[in-house]
Design a protein around this nucleic acid. Structure first.
Lengths: 220, 220
DNA sequence: GCCATTTAATGAATGTAATTTATTTGGCTG
DNA sequence: CAGCCAAATAAATTACATTCATTAAATGGC
């Protein structure tokens, strides 16, 4: 029961911002690598250069921490995307770009994508999360594009824009699951083309392909 | 330290099949209600009328148990579906039925659906799972229908059947997430119609609405 | 019907990981 | 330079899954 007075514990004190940033970076790394369940606070702490319990001074709990990580990722993606879109002409091209961008994001960050798809979205609290709000912002460009395309007469007007959104993001997700599990790769460009084409043209054999030489311009 | 000889422990011995069935039923109930993480072996054991440790005589571990539960569910769905399909004429109608059936399955078993979507599919081992094989069997009817439709000239032949499959199941899944989280309901019939229509007709304004019998509004 | 063997079932032990709490430490202020 | 406060720590707590040694029921040979 004699306590070892000799062993002074080493304490490394840092400014709040620095610590928080260090923890976030460590958490990003570990969550990306291991997913949510298999990520341990102790590994994050070790990587950030402190002790498990100390994480809780900066973040409420493991979930809060992972949410902060995902938030940062979303913010980056949204601003990145907003920089590109204005330069693209025509609803179909814009749609193609949104599809391309999402495929690309998944390919760049499979670990974080998995986290969102399987850890957050199913959560009954998801709707109250900031991730939900960010995701809505992120996906709303598709519904916006669709509405614009309808106004311009480029798209038929009797389709629900949110159904189109679900179709696009759902299709992409299903298409990329094998990759997300680490089973090989996929081609962003080809996939984007294929989805855009199927979505716009539809599956039916065109009833009257002869009559329309100019697919874009409407007549009279 | 005196051990209580007086307290004889009560043991309820049952035939293997009965025990296994009891455990499976209890597990079905608990997993449906609580999902995977929040389901505890002790709750399942209690409901099945035995003690935690005993579960492990019948199932390797928690994961093995949940897999058995999901397997049973899939087998039921597949046979149920195979009973209907032959009676339907035309690729488009068959597709509509597959879509309808999946929507219906999700609506009947939101808890189990969530389990598959967020617990199994992301698992790196998923491909080696029997669930994977069953899911493949379950979804393959869509690719089959699409191929048939192409052969019959009802569908265009330059589309990947598996892309259509991903589009359908992905779209359905995205469309039902809010419901799966317990946020309200959805209409199976209407949704099935909307998806079928969008998938077959496509988003583009028909270049030549005059030639076909006026789907929405005709001008002039 | 009776003992020996087999196997179901138990209850306690083990291990791991998140979270909480009581203590200690370092830097800053008056 | 003493004392305070927030930052860090280490140890305690909790909640489960999983393992294991022990007990009890069933069964088969006599």
């Amino acid at each position: 029961m004699a306590r070892p007075r000799t062993k002074k514990r080493i304490v490394n004190r840092l400014p709040r911002e620095r610590r928080e940033a260090d923890i976030l970076e460590a958490a990003l790394h570990v969550f990306r690598l291991r997913g949510y369940e298999n990520a341990s606070i102790s590994e994050i702490a070790e990587r950030a250069g402190l002790v498990e319990g100390s994480i809780y001074r900066y973040f409420q709990n493991k979930r809060d921490l992972v949410i902060k990580v995902i938030e940062q990722w979303y913010l980056g993606m949204i601003s990145e995307d907003e920089a590109w879109l204005p330069g693209i002409e025509g609803a179909r091209n814009k749609l193609r770009h949104a599809i391309w961008h999402h495929l690309n994001a998944i390919r760049q960050e499979p670990g974080l994508s998995r986290l969102v798809f399987s850890e957050f979205r199913p959560d009954p609290e998801y709707r109250q999360t900031t991730i939900f709000a960010l995701n809505r912002r992120y996906t709303s460009r598709v519904t916006d594009i669709v509405r614009e395309g309808m106004q311009a007469g480029e798209f038929r007007a009797d389709v629900s824009p949110s159904l189109v959104r679900n179709l696009i993001y759902g299709c992409i997700e299903h298409h990329t699951w094998a990759f997300l599990r680490g089973e090989g790769d996929f081609d962003v460009e080809r996939t984007a083309d294929a989805i855009t084409n199927l979505l716009c043209q539809g599956l039916d054999q065109r009833p009257n392909p002869v009559a329309s030489p100019a697919p874009r311009k409407k007549r009279l």
